[in-house]
Design a protein around this nucleic acid. Sequence first.
DNA 1: TTGTATGCGTTATCAA
DNA 2: TTGATAACGCATACAA
Lengths: 358, 358
Amino acid sequence: MDRSPRRRPPATLASLAAELGISRTTVSNAYNRPEQLSAQLRTRILEAARALGYPGPDPVARSLRTKRAGAIGLVLADKVSYAVRDPVAIAFLEGLTEECDRARVGLLLVPADPDAEDVAAVASASIDGFVAFAMADEDPHLEAVLARGVPTVICDQPVVPGVDSVGIDDEQAMRAVAEHLLALGHRRIGVACMRLGRAHRDGPVDLERQLRARYHAQRNRLAGLRSAFVEAGVAWDRIPVVERFDNSVEAGASAAAELLGLDSGLTAIITTSDVLAFGVLQELERRHQRVPQDVAVTGFDGVKDAVARGLTTVHQPFVEKGRRAGQLLLEKNPQPGGRRVVLPTEFLPGSTTAAPRT
Amino acid sequence: MDRSPRRRPPATLASLAAELGISRTTVSNAYNRPEQLSAQLRTRILEAARALGYPGPDPVARSLRTKRAGAIGLVLADKVSYAVRDPVAIAFLEGLTEECDRARVGLLLVPADPDAEDVAAVASASIDGFVAFAMADEDPHLEAVLARGVPTVICDQPVVPGVDSVGIDDEQAMRAVAEHLLALGHRRIGVACMRLGRAHRDGPVDLERQLRARYHAQRNRLAGLRSAFVEAGVAWDRIPVVERFDNSVEAGASAAAELLGLDSGLTAIITTSDVLAFGVLQELERRHQRVPQDVAVTGFDGVKDAVARGLTTVHQPFVEKGRRAGQLLLEKNPQPGGRRVVLPTEFLPGSTTAAPRT
DNA sequence: TTGTATGCGTTATCAA
DNA sequence: TTGATAACGCATACAA
């Protein structure tokens, strides 16, 4: 990544000025303040620049001087490639990039691999502000973001004093799902949730781990289920909960298999993401279990595919979430931080839930 | 976006060193070369940093000094938000971000609104290299990319001497579609293509405009159709071709309407993207025209949805395309530019094409 | 293990 | 309309 066709040291503003026998200021103005010099001189400068292979003012040096990078950074709890693989992340990006376009700033996707404690990418991102999306409570990458001291908006994370945040009421949203299934008469229900900590771990989750979950959204969604169950007189400790590190269809399928292994008489499986729910559906189909007759299934997020397939789920406005995050970060007249935006969710009953058979 | 809780001028490496009565070098080492100083001193420095609110070495200043930004830029022929809306762009990003993750660099999405001649974002992006994706031949943003003189890989664009490129054989790929329909017996065929120039323009396209199309992929796909038709003895100038600026379902629907207006006896509609094809299908359904019995439809790209819906299309390996672009740009041992990667495509006959009636 | 000196390439300020 | 000067904040070669 360093093949340059040049010989001599690359031209700079200074070398160009020297060559022309004029000052650096004038050369700088030729690029940044065209009206500050005669069109004639400007043309001469630009031509000399071309002749010398001067590519124009160095962006980094300019940023150093102007204290503007012209970009904001997005950090999420995973590799960069996750951001363009997960439908929820993509939808969030849709809203966020809309605001970037409006403000004419770039968006830097910053790597934050949960397997790596390597925070360098966060510390060395040349940006004017950060959006942190769905990160674990003590993720060092998150701490690095906060430590940068640049304007920041956090999403789907616990409130941090003085920092703007955007989110939903996960607990309340998930209660709707539980109440729906309970009202239908389900009692033997399994739960498949996403990662609860930064370490790879798949398997059953005890109450202790549920309460200590490091991911705000997962913790609160489980809490919503728990309180609804308890209120309905269903012993929560009888409800099998399994965790999957990856939020993938495959993970959902294996979670379903594990749940049915724990209790083959389950009449419903609740998941904390639509993607996991797709996996559950897949596994049930493989086992020739009918949905919803044999097993009811629910998701969370309300992504397009889920709605199209009639999955019972909860819609959260992820595009709007990204948009609001962008607005908070990019607004013209900076406000003091610490604002809190809570977006509404909507329970979407679908065709994957019904009353259990007798 | 500028709310800082600080009073005095923000701390720097120098001010911190001064405060501690040590040299800047040592403070720098505390961050970048921990093994170069005693753990004790290092701790003292880091603590003082925290106390003074010093967020660590400034990334921009560091980049200026080290000549590394730790990020690459992606420029495509549209706003940033397009990159996360179009399924092909998303898939390309999937491959590209994989390589970013591997190389531990960030990805900067650079705005290049076709409506704006504003090239500043490209000129001022702090990056170590560029990927240019599907840009118009004389797009000023593309010229700005090339002018930057940083390592660059171009995708789905005409070869530029000395610049690495990745692409497919659009002409050949599209020929397969034409030959398929011709073999089935279709003769009255309409074509819906994507934008052929940077200016907004929807409507019929004459041969002149086809030949002068500024978008490499569109130009070649049309050429592929043309040569196949001519070879089969079908007069190309009888084939209605309509253009749509937006690559959207709505655009596809309106293109279908326009084509049927031009020739209500069409037995097949060819599109140059799956997304447009979805729109065509939608419009045909609205008109109670059956596919493929009344009208056959083809797409291009082979996106997931298209395959799932049985659209007759051409699959191109966009994920691999992004991956290869990333590899060329990020490889450890830089090679001289000018390499050319041409990826294979695959014609995928589906259920949306059949012989015309009678 | 620590410090000194220098330069990275630019823009802002102010004076001419 | 143009130019001189002074930062911007840091890392590196080299000396101590």
